[in-house]
Design a protein around this nucleic acid. Structure first.
Length: 451
RNA sequence: GCCUAAAUAGCUCAGUUGGUUAGAGCACCUGACUGUUAAUCAGGGGGUCGUAGGUUCGAGUCCUACUUUGGGCGCCA
Protein backbone atom coordinates (compact mmCIF):
# COMPACT_ATOMS: atom_id res chain seq x y z
CA UNK A 1 0.00 0.00 0.00
CA UNK A 2 1.32 3.41 -1.00
CA UNK A 3 0.49 6.80 0.54
CA UNK A 4 -0.53 9.75 -1.61
CA UNK A 5 2.12 11.77 0.18
CA UNK A 6 4.78 9.47 -1.26
CA UNK A 7 3.22 9.59 -4.70
CA UNK A 8 3.39 13.38 -4.69
CA UNK A 9 6.94 13.47 -3.33
CA UNK A 10 8.41 10.77 -5.55
CA UNK A 11 6.13 10.77 -8.59
CA UNK A 12 8.83 9.82 -11.07
CA UNK A 13 9.81 6.71 -9.13
CA UNK A 14 6.30 5.35 -9.49
CA UNK A 15 5.79 6.13 -13.18
CA UNK A 16 3.86 3.31 -14.91
CA UNK A 17 4.19 1.09 -11.84
CA UNK A 18 1.44 -1.03 -10.34
CA UNK A 19 0.32 0.47 -7.04
CA UNK A 20 -2.31 0.04 -4.36
CA UNK A 21 -3.93 2.85 -2.36
CA UNK A 22 -6.79 3.22 0.10
CA UNK A 23 -8.74 6.32 0.94
CA UNK A 24 -12.03 8.17 1.03
CA UNK A 25 -13.97 9.42 -1.97
CA UNK A 26 -14.27 13.19 -2.11
CA UNK A 27 -16.02 13.26 -5.48
CA UNK A 28 -17.10 10.72 -8.09
CA UNK A 29 -17.83 11.87 -11.64
CA UNK A 30 -19.27 8.94 -13.52
CA UNK A 31 -19.84 8.90 -17.25
CA UNK A 32 -21.10 6.18 -19.56
CA UNK A 33 -17.94 4.18 -20.18
CA UNK A 34 -15.59 5.68 -17.59
CA UNK A 35 -15.45 7.90 -14.56
CA UNK A 36 -13.21 9.82 -12.19
CA UNK A 37 -12.87 9.57 -8.43
CA UNK A 38 -11.13 12.22 -6.35
CA UNK A 39 -9.66 10.32 -3.45
CA UNK A 40 -7.95 11.54 -0.30
CA UNK A 41 -6.09 9.07 1.86
CA UNK A 42 -5.31 11.33 4.80
CA UNK A 43 -1.57 11.25 4.26
CA UNK A 44 -1.51 14.71 2.75
CA UNK A 45 -3.76 17.63 1.88
CA UNK A 46 -4.09 16.81 -1.80
CA UNK A 47 -6.40 14.33 -3.46
CA UNK A 48 -5.54 12.05 -6.32
CA UNK A 49 -7.66 11.23 -9.35
CA UNK A 50 -8.62 7.62 -9.96
CA UNK A 51 -9.65 6.90 -13.55
CA UNK A 52 -11.89 3.91 -14.01
CA UNK A 53 -13.22 2.38 -17.21
CA UNK A 54 -15.94 -0.12 -18.02
CA UNK A 55 -13.43 -2.27 -19.92
CA UNK A 56 -11.12 -2.61 -16.92
CA UNK A 57 -13.51 -3.25 -14.05
CA UNK A 58 -15.87 -6.11 -13.34
CA UNK A 59 -17.85 -3.93 -10.96
CA UNK A 60 -17.93 -0.78 -13.13
CA UNK A 61 -21.68 -0.28 -12.65
CA UNK A 62 -21.23 -0.38 -8.88
CA UNK A 63 -18.23 1.94 -8.85
CA UNK A 64 -20.21 4.54 -10.78
CA UNK A 65 -22.53 4.74 -7.79
CA UNK A 66 -19.93 4.94 -5.02
CA UNK A 67 -20.84 8.02 -3.02
CA UNK A 68 -18.81 10.75 -1.39
CA UNK A 69 -17.33 9.70 1.91
CA UNK A 70 -17.10 6.01 1.04
CA UNK A 71 -13.77 4.30 1.69
CA UNK A 72 -12.20 2.32 -1.12
CA UNK A 73 -9.15 0.26 -1.95
CA UNK A 74 -7.73 0.80 -5.42
CA UNK A 75 -5.20 -1.21 -7.38
CA UNK A 76 -3.95 0.06 -10.71
CA UNK A 77 -1.27 1.74 -12.75
CA UNK A 78 0.31 5.03 -11.69
CA UNK A 79 0.52 7.35 -14.69
CA UNK A 80 2.17 10.78 -14.92
CA UNK A 81 -0.07 13.33 -16.64
CA UNK A 82 2.03 16.47 -17.05
CA UNK A 83 -0.40 18.03 -19.52
CA UNK A 84 -3.44 17.70 -17.23
CA UNK A 85 -4.58 19.86 -14.31
CA UNK A 86 -3.31 17.14 -11.98
CA UNK A 87 0.29 15.87 -12.14
CA UNK A 88 -0.67 12.19 -12.15
CA UNK A 89 -3.56 9.79 -11.85
CA UNK A 90 -4.22 6.14 -11.16
CA UNK A 91 -5.72 3.96 -13.91
CA UNK A 92 -7.80 1.59 -11.82
CA UNK A 93 -7.75 -2.14 -12.41
CA UNK A 94 -9.59 -3.00 -9.23
CA UNK A 95 -11.72 -0.85 -6.92
CA UNK A 96 -13.11 -2.42 -3.76
CA UNK A 97 -15.69 -0.70 -1.60
CA UNK A 98 -14.40 -0.96 1.95
CA UNK A 99 -17.06 1.13 3.69
CA UNK A 100 -20.23 2.40 2.07
CA UNK A 101 -21.37 5.98 2.65
CA UNK A 102 -25.10 6.41 3.03
CA UNK A 103 -27.21 8.61 0.76
CA UNK A 104 -27.51 11.28 3.42
CA UNK A 105 -23.77 11.96 3.80
CA UNK A 106 -23.79 15.66 4.62
CA UNK A 107 -20.44 16.68 3.10
CA UNK A 108 -20.98 17.82 -0.45
CA UNK A 109 -18.49 18.87 -3.10
CA UNK A 110 -19.32 22.51 -2.51
CA UNK A 111 -18.77 25.22 0.04
CA UNK A 112 -20.39 24.72 3.40
CA UNK A 113 -20.80 27.38 6.03
CA UNK A 114 -18.55 27.13 9.07
CA UNK A 115 -21.66 27.19 11.24
CA UNK A 116 -23.06 24.07 9.59
CA UNK A 117 -19.71 22.32 9.79
CA UNK A 118 -19.45 23.10 13.50
CA UNK A 119 -22.53 20.96 13.95
CA UNK A 120 -20.61 18.07 12.34
CA UNK A 121 -17.18 18.25 13.98
CA UNK A 122 -16.68 14.53 13.34
CA UNK A 123 -17.25 14.90 9.61
CA UNK A 124 -15.88 18.36 8.92
CA UNK A 125 -12.32 17.03 9.20
CA UNK A 126 -12.89 15.47 5.79
CA UNK A 127 -13.24 18.88 4.16
CA UNK A 128 -10.37 20.81 2.64
CA UNK A 129 -10.49 23.59 5.23
CA UNK A 130 -10.43 21.38 8.30
CA UNK A 131 -8.03 18.93 6.75
CA UNK A 132 -5.67 21.88 6.36
CA UNK A 133 -6.37 23.36 9.80
CA UNK A 134 -5.81 20.20 11.78
CA UNK A 135 -2.77 19.03 9.90
CA UNK A 136 -1.32 22.48 10.48
CA UNK A 137 -2.23 22.25 14.14
CA UNK A 138 -0.25 19.04 14.37
CA UNK A 139 2.72 20.53 12.57
CA UNK A 140 2.63 23.64 14.75
CA UNK A 141 2.73 21.49 17.88
CA UNK A 142 5.70 19.63 16.47
CA UNK A 143 7.42 22.91 15.54
CA UNK A 144 6.95 24.26 19.05
CA UNK A 145 8.42 21.13 20.60
CA UNK A 146 11.32 21.27 18.13
CA UNK A 147 11.95 24.92 18.91
CA UNK A 148 12.27 24.30 22.63
CA UNK A 149 14.08 21.02 22.28
CA UNK A 150 16.72 22.60 20.06
CA UNK A 151 17.27 25.13 22.84
CA UNK A 152 17.67 22.45 25.49
CA UNK A 153 14.37 23.19 27.23
CA UNK A 154 12.86 20.46 29.40
CA UNK A 155 9.24 19.62 28.62
CA UNK A 156 7.20 19.45 31.82
CA UNK A 157 3.68 18.06 32.24
CA UNK A 158 1.94 20.00 34.97
CA UNK A 159 -1.27 18.73 36.60
CA UNK A 160 -4.70 19.42 35.17
CA UNK A 161 -6.39 19.00 38.53
CA UNK A 162 -5.32 21.54 41.08
CA UNK A 163 -6.32 22.91 44.44
CA UNK A 164 -5.09 26.40 43.58
CA UNK A 165 -8.15 28.48 43.11
CA UNK A 166 -6.53 30.27 40.18
CA UNK A 167 -4.95 33.49 41.35
CA UNK A 168 -6.37 36.11 39.04
CA UNK A 169 -6.51 33.95 35.96
CA UNK A 170 -10.23 33.67 35.60
CA UNK A 171 -13.12 31.48 36.68
CA UNK A 172 -12.44 27.81 37.35
CA UNK A 173 -14.30 24.60 36.68
CA UNK A 174 -14.80 22.63 39.85
CA UNK A 175 -13.99 18.93 39.87
CA UNK A 176 -16.23 16.67 41.91
CA UNK A 177 -16.85 12.94 42.00
CA UNK A 178 -20.05 12.20 43.82
CA UNK A 179 -20.19 14.43 46.82
CA UNK A 180 -21.49 17.93 47.23
CA UNK A 181 -19.35 18.30 50.32
CA UNK A 182 -15.72 18.89 49.31
CA UNK A 183 -14.39 17.63 52.65
CA UNK A 184 -15.80 14.17 52.08
CA UNK A 185 -15.24 14.11 48.34
CA UNK A 186 -12.38 12.42 46.54
CA UNK A 187 -9.55 14.81 47.39
CA UNK A 188 -10.95 15.95 50.69
CA UNK A 189 -10.99 19.54 49.52
CA UNK A 190 -12.19 21.77 46.73
CA UNK A 191 -10.29 21.09 43.52
CA UNK A 192 -10.45 22.57 40.06
CA UNK A 193 -9.33 22.17 36.47
CA UNK A 194 -6.21 24.20 35.94
CA UNK A 195 -6.27 27.65 34.35
CA UNK A 196 -2.50 27.77 33.91
CA UNK A 197 0.54 25.60 34.45
CA UNK A 198 2.76 28.52 35.31
CA UNK A 199 2.81 28.27 39.09
CA UNK A 200 3.58 24.57 38.87
CA UNK A 201 6.29 24.96 36.26
CA UNK A 202 8.22 27.78 37.91
CA UNK A 203 9.80 25.37 40.44
CA UNK A 204 10.97 23.25 37.49
CA UNK A 205 12.73 26.29 36.07
CA UNK A 206 14.57 26.50 39.37
CA UNK A 207 15.84 22.96 38.74
CA UNK A 208 16.15 22.58 34.97
CA UNK A 209 16.77 26.24 34.13
CA UNK A 210 14.71 26.37 30.93
CA UNK A 211 11.42 24.52 30.80
CA UNK A 212 8.04 24.62 29.11
CA UNK A 213 4.58 23.13 29.35
CA UNK A 214 2.28 22.26 26.48
CA UNK A 215 -1.17 21.26 27.54
CA UNK A 216 -4.86 21.96 27.88
CA UNK A 217 -6.28 24.58 30.18
CA UNK A 218 -9.80 25.40 31.28
CA UNK A 219 -11.65 28.62 31.94
CA UNK A 220 -15.24 28.76 33.09
CA UNK A 221 -15.75 32.33 31.92
CA UNK A 222 -18.92 33.28 30.14
CA UNK A 223 -17.02 34.65 27.17
CA UNK A 224 -18.89 34.66 23.90
CA UNK A 225 -16.43 35.75 21.28
CA UNK A 226 -14.48 34.37 18.34
CA UNK A 227 -11.34 34.26 20.43
CA UNK A 228 -12.48 32.42 23.56
CA UNK A 229 -13.08 28.78 24.34
CA UNK A 230 -13.69 27.04 27.64
CA UNK A 231 -11.02 24.46 26.88
CA UNK A 232 -7.91 25.48 25.00
CA UNK A 233 -4.21 24.76 24.84
CA UNK A 234 -1.33 26.78 26.16
CA UNK A 235 2.42 26.65 25.84
CA UNK A 236 4.16 28.10 28.88
CA UNK A 237 7.93 28.41 28.84
CA UNK A 238 9.78 29.54 31.96
CA UNK A 239 13.41 30.62 31.84
CA UNK A 240 15.82 31.11 34.71
CA UNK A 241 18.51 33.79 35.02
CA UNK A 242 16.46 35.80 32.52
CA UNK A 243 14.68 39.12 32.46
CA UNK A 244 11.85 40.63 30.44
CA UNK A 245 14.05 41.30 27.43
CA UNK A 246 15.05 37.65 27.32
CA UNK A 247 11.42 36.65 27.59
CA UNK A 248 10.38 38.89 24.69
CA UNK A 249 13.30 37.64 22.61
CA UNK A 250 12.27 34.06 23.26
CA UNK A 251 8.65 34.75 22.31
CA UNK A 252 9.68 36.52 19.13
CA UNK A 253 12.09 33.76 18.13
CA UNK A 254 9.42 31.14 18.75
CA UNK A 255 6.79 32.94 16.64
CA UNK A 256 9.25 33.34 13.78
CA UNK A 257 10.39 29.73 14.07
CA UNK A 258 6.82 28.46 13.82
CA UNK A 259 5.99 30.72 10.87
CA UNK A 260 9.07 29.53 9.02
CA UNK A 261 8.26 25.95 9.87
CA UNK A 262 4.73 25.99 8.47
CA UNK A 263 5.76 27.89 5.36
CA UNK A 264 8.47 25.29 4.73
CA UNK A 265 6.57 22.16 5.71
CA UNK A 266 2.91 22.86 4.89
CA UNK A 267 2.96 24.58 1.49
CA UNK A 268 -0.29 22.98 0.27
CA UNK A 269 -2.19 23.95 3.39
CA UNK A 270 -0.75 27.47 3.47
CA UNK A 271 -1.59 28.02 -0.20
CA UNK A 272 -5.14 26.90 0.54
CA UNK A 273 -5.47 29.38 3.42
CA UNK A 274 -3.95 32.11 1.30
CA UNK A 275 -6.38 31.45 -1.54
CA UNK A 276 -9.62 30.67 0.26
CA UNK A 277 -9.39 31.95 3.84
CA UNK A 278 -7.34 35.13 3.87
CA UNK A 279 -5.94 36.64 0.70
CA UNK A 280 -2.37 37.79 1.25
CA UNK A 281 -1.86 35.58 4.30
CA UNK A 282 1.49 34.21 3.16
CA UNK A 283 2.86 37.66 2.40
CA UNK A 284 1.67 38.87 5.77
CA UNK A 285 3.42 36.02 7.56
CA UNK A 286 6.59 36.49 5.53
CA UNK A 287 6.59 40.15 6.49
CA UNK A 288 6.44 39.16 10.16
CA UNK A 289 9.18 36.61 9.60
CA UNK A 290 11.38 39.24 7.98
CA UNK A 291 10.77 41.88 10.65
CA UNK A 292 14.17 42.66 12.14
CA UNK A 293 12.68 43.07 15.59
CA UNK A 294 9.06 43.28 16.73
CA UNK A 295 7.98 46.65 18.05
CA UNK A 296 8.31 46.93 21.84
CA UNK A 297 6.64 49.72 23.76
CA UNK A 298 5.58 50.44 27.28
CA UNK A 299 1.94 50.44 28.23
CA UNK A 300 2.32 54.16 28.96
CA UNK A 301 3.56 54.86 25.44
CA UNK A 302 0.85 52.66 23.96
CA UNK A 303 -1.80 54.72 25.70
CA UNK A 304 -0.13 57.91 24.48
CA UNK A 305 -0.24 56.61 20.90
CA UNK A 306 -3.91 55.77 21.32
CA UNK A 307 -4.72 59.16 22.85
CA UNK A 308 -2.94 60.95 20.00
CA UNK A 309 -4.57 58.82 17.34
CA UNK A 310 -7.71 60.93 16.84
CA UNK A 311 -9.61 57.65 16.49
CA UNK A 312 -13.08 57.67 17.91
CA UNK A 313 -12.68 54.81 20.40
CA UNK A 314 -15.72 53.54 22.23
CA UNK A 315 -13.48 52.85 25.21
CA UNK A 316 -11.37 55.79 26.26
CA UNK A 317 -7.68 54.76 26.57
CA UNK A 318 -6.43 55.34 30.09
CA UNK A 319 -2.94 55.19 31.54
CA UNK A 320 -4.13 53.10 34.45
CA UNK A 321 -6.38 50.85 32.38
CA UNK A 322 -6.38 47.76 30.22
CA UNK A 323 -6.33 47.76 26.43
CA UNK A 324 -9.68 47.15 24.77
CA UNK A 325 -9.95 45.04 21.63
CA UNK A 326 -10.23 48.16 19.49
CA UNK A 327 -7.03 49.48 21.07
CA UNK A 328 -5.17 46.28 20.31
CA UNK A 329 -6.34 46.42 16.71
CA UNK A 330 -5.22 50.02 16.36
CA UNK A 331 -1.78 49.27 17.77
CA UNK A 332 -1.14 46.33 15.43
CA UNK A 333 -2.25 48.54 12.54
CA UNK A 334 -0.07 51.38 13.80
CA UNK A 335 3.01 49.14 13.89
CA UNK A 336 1.82 47.11 10.90
CA UNK A 337 2.72 43.87 12.64
CA UNK A 338 3.24 42.26 16.04
CA UNK A 339 3.95 44.51 19.00
CA UNK A 340 4.99 43.82 22.58
CA UNK A 341 3.36 46.02 25.18
CA UNK A 342 5.13 45.88 28.52
CA UNK A 343 5.36 47.59 31.92
CA UNK A 344 1.70 47.49 32.80
CA UNK A 345 -0.04 49.17 35.74
CA UNK A 346 0.33 46.73 38.64
CA UNK A 347 -3.34 46.91 39.56
CA UNK A 348 -4.48 45.13 36.40
CA UNK A 349 -1.83 42.41 36.36
CA UNK A 350 -1.11 39.28 38.38
CA UNK A 351 0.60 39.16 41.77
CA UNK A 352 3.69 37.30 40.54
CA UNK A 353 4.88 39.96 38.09
CA UNK A 354 8.03 41.83 39.03
CA UNK A 355 7.42 45.26 40.46
CA UNK A 356 9.29 48.10 38.78
CA UNK A 357 11.18 50.70 40.76
CA UNK A 358 8.38 53.20 40.15
CA UNK A 359 6.26 51.00 42.44
CA UNK A 360 3.40 51.52 39.98
CA UNK A 361 4.09 49.22 37.05
CA UNK A 362 5.08 45.60 36.67
CA UNK A 363 7.26 43.80 34.17
CA UNK A 364 4.43 42.17 32.29
CA UNK A 365 4.46 41.89 28.53
CA UNK A 366 1.71 41.05 26.04
CA UNK A 367 2.33 40.27 22.40
CA UNK A 368 -0.39 41.66 20.14
CA UNK A 369 -0.70 40.43 16.58
CA UNK A 370 -2.98 41.46 13.72
CA UNK A 371 -6.13 39.34 13.64
CA UNK A 372 -5.84 37.43 16.91
CA UNK A 373 -5.07 40.27 19.32
CA UNK A 374 -3.17 39.09 22.36
CA UNK A 375 -1.60 35.70 21.67
CA UNK A 376 1.08 35.82 24.34
CA UNK A 377 1.00 37.12 27.88
CA UNK A 378 4.20 36.99 29.87
CA UNK A 379 6.28 38.66 32.50
CA UNK A 380 9.46 38.75 34.47
CA UNK A 381 8.58 37.18 37.81
CA UNK A 382 8.93 38.83 41.19
CA UNK A 383 11.84 36.92 42.67
CA UNK A 384 12.25 39.11 45.80
CA UNK A 385 10.65 37.23 48.67
CA UNK A 386 9.65 40.27 50.69
CA UNK A 387 8.15 42.11 47.72
CA UNK A 388 6.22 39.04 46.60
CA UNK A 389 4.78 38.42 50.07
CA UNK A 390 3.81 42.06 50.35
CA UNK A 391 1.98 41.92 47.02
CA UNK A 392 0.13 38.77 48.06
CA UNK A 393 -0.88 40.42 51.29
CA UNK A 394 -2.06 43.56 49.49
CA UNK A 395 -4.26 41.42 47.27
CA UNK A 396 -5.65 39.48 50.20
CA UNK A 397 -4.32 36.19 48.95
CA UNK A 398 -4.09 33.06 51.04
CA UNK A 399 -0.35 32.62 51.54
CA UNK A 400 -0.70 29.20 53.11
CA UNK A 401 -1.99 27.49 49.97
CA UNK A 402 0.83 28.99 47.90
CA UNK A 403 3.59 28.48 50.42
CA UNK A 404 5.15 25.82 48.20
CA UNK A 405 5.30 28.33 45.35
CA UNK A 406 6.89 30.96 47.57
CA UNK A 407 9.57 28.40 48.47
CA UNK A 408 11.13 29.04 45.06
CA UNK A 409 12.00 32.49 46.40
CA UNK A 410 13.29 31.13 49.70
CA UNK A 411 15.72 28.55 48.39
CA UNK A 412 18.00 29.82 45.67
CA UNK A 413 15.60 32.05 43.81
CA UNK A 414 16.85 33.96 40.83
CA UNK A 415 15.49 36.37 38.31
CA UNK A 416 13.32 34.49 35.87
CA UNK A 417 10.60 35.07 33.33
CA UNK A 418 8.10 33.25 31.18
CA UNK A 419 5.03 33.55 29.04
CA UNK A 420 1.85 31.78 28.04
CA UNK A 421 1.03 31.28 24.39
CA UNK A 422 -2.56 30.61 23.34
CA UNK A 423 -2.08 27.81 20.83
CA UNK A 424 -5.44 28.37 19.14
CA UNK A 425 -4.82 32.09 18.80
CA UNK A 426 -1.50 31.33 17.19
CA UNK A 427 -3.29 28.99 14.78
CA UNK A 428 -5.80 31.69 13.93
CA UNK A 429 -2.90 34.03 13.23
CA UNK A 430 -1.20 31.42 11.02
CA UNK A 431 -4.26 30.30 9.06
CA UNK A 432 -6.43 33.41 8.83
CA UNK A 433 -9.31 31.40 10.31
CA UNK A 434 -11.16 33.97 12.39
CA UNK A 435 -13.11 31.78 14.84
CA UNK A 436 -11.41 29.78 17.59
CA UNK A 437 -14.14 27.13 17.26
CA UNK A 438 -12.68 26.24 13.88
CA UNK A 439 -9.18 25.47 15.10
CA UNK A 440 -10.29 23.23 18.00
CA UNK A 441 -11.32 19.67 17.27
CA UNK A 442 -14.51 19.61 19.36
CA UNK A 443 -14.74 23.17 20.65
CA UNK A 444 -16.20 23.78 24.09
CA UNK A 445 -17.85 27.12 24.72
CA UNK A 446 -20.52 28.32 27.16
CA UNK A 447 -23.63 26.16 26.68
CA UNK A 448 -21.90 23.97 24.15
CA UNK A 449 -20.31 20.67 25.09
CA UNK A 450 -21.82 18.27 22.57
CA UNK A 451 -19.93 15.34 21.13
C1' G B 1 -23.27 38.94 30.93
C1' C B 2 -24.75 43.31 27.46
C1' C B 3 -26.02 45.03 22.31
C1' U B 4 -27.44 43.51 17.44
C1' A B 5 -28.96 40.47 13.24
C1' A B 6 -30.88 36.04 11.54
C1' A B 7 -33.83 31.20 11.47
C1' U B 8 -37.91 28.71 4.60
C1' A B 9 -36.03 21.19 1.48
C1' G B 10 -30.08 17.42 3.78
C1' C B 11 -26.84 22.17 2.28
C1' U B 12 -26.79 27.44 0.26
C1' C B 13 -30.50 30.80 -0.69
C1' A B 14 -35.01 33.50 -3.29
C1' G B 15 -40.00 34.34 -1.82
C1' U B 16 -42.88 41.66 -3.99
C1' U B 17 -47.48 46.50 -0.32
C1' G B 18 -50.16 39.98 3.94
C1' G B 19 -53.64 36.67 -0.99
C1' U B 20 -55.06 30.75 -3.90
C1' U B 21 -50.86 24.61 -5.18
C1' A B 22 -43.88 27.98 -1.15
C1' G B 23 -39.36 28.08 -5.68
C1' A B 24 -33.96 27.61 -7.54
C1' G B 25 -28.89 25.54 -7.41
C1' C B 26 -26.25 21.69 -5.01
C1' A B 27 -26.97 16.75 -2.57
C1' C B 28 -30.01 12.09 -3.27
C1' C B 29 -32.77 8.62 -6.95
C1' U B 30 -33.65 7.40 -12.52
C1' G B 31 -31.76 8.19 -17.34
C1' A B 32 -28.28 10.52 -21.23
C1' C B 33 -23.10 11.45 -22.19
C1' U B 34 -15.76 8.64 -24.90
C1' G B 35 -11.28 12.86 -20.39
C1' U B 36 -14.20 14.90 -16.23
C1' U B 37 -11.88 18.69 -12.52
C1' A B 38 -17.55 21.62 -7.27
C1' A B 39 -18.35 17.94 -14.94
C1' U B 40 -22.71 18.76 -17.95
C1' C B 41 -27.89 17.71 -19.70
C1' A B 42 -33.17 15.68 -18.87
C1' G B 43 -36.63 13.88 -15.27
C1' G B 44 -38.11 12.51 -10.09
C1' G B 45 -38.74 12.33 -4.74
C1' G B 46 -38.07 15.58 -0.65
C1' G B 47 -41.15 21.37 3.29
C1' U B 48 -46.40 21.06 9.55
C1' C B 49 -41.44 28.06 6.59
C1' G B 50 -37.13 27.44 14.54
C1' U B 51 -41.07 26.76 18.86
C1' A B 52 -45.52 28.71 21.29
C1' G B 53 -49.10 32.30 21.33
C1' G B 54 -51.54 36.62 18.99
C1' U B 55 -53.58 40.25 15.00
C1' U B 56 -56.42 39.25 10.39
C1' C B 57 -61.60 36.89 6.10
C1' G B 58 -56.50 35.18 5.09
C1' A B 59 -49.61 34.91 7.93
C1' G B 60 -43.37 32.22 5.26
C1' U B 61 -44.53 37.70 5.36
C1' C B 62 -47.18 41.73 10.87
C1' C B 63 -46.86 41.59 16.71
C1' U B 64 -45.13 39.18 21.58
C1' A B 65 -42.32 35.59 24.23
C1' C B 66 -38.94 31.69 24.05
C1' U B 67 -34.98 28.64 21.69
C1' U B 68 -30.76 28.31 18.61
C1' U B 69 -27.03 30.52 15.64
C1' G B 70 -23.94 34.60 13.60
C1' G B 71 -21.60 39.39 14.50
C1' G B 72 -20.01 43.35 18.05
C1' C B 73 -18.60 44.43 23.26
C1' G B 74 -16.93 42.96 28.19
C1' C B 75 -13.80 39.26 30.95
C1' C B 76 -9.13 36.82 29.16
C1' A B 77 -4.95 33.48 26.27
Amino acid sequence: MILLKDLYQNSKDYSDKQIEVSGWIRNNRAQKEFGFIDMNDGSCFKTCQIVYEANNLDNFKDVQKFRNGASVNVKGKFVLTPDMPQPFEIKAEEIILLGDSQEDYPMQPKRHTREFLREKPHLRVRTNLFSAVFRLRSEVAYAIHSFFHERNFVYVNTPLITSNDGEGAGQLFGVVTNSENPETDFFGKKVFLTVTGQLHVEPYAMAFRNVYTFGPTFRAENSNTQKHASEFWMVEPEIAFADLDDEENLAEDMIKYVIKYVLDHCPSEMEFFDKFVEKGLIDRLKAVLNTEKFARITHHDAITILKNSKENFENEPEYGGDLATEHEKYLTRYFNGPVFVHDWPKDIKAFYMKLNDDNETVRGSDLLVPGSGEIIGGSQREERLDVLLKRMEELGMNEATLDWYVDTRRYGGCKHAGFGLGVERLLMFLTGVDNIRDVLSYPRTPNNCDF
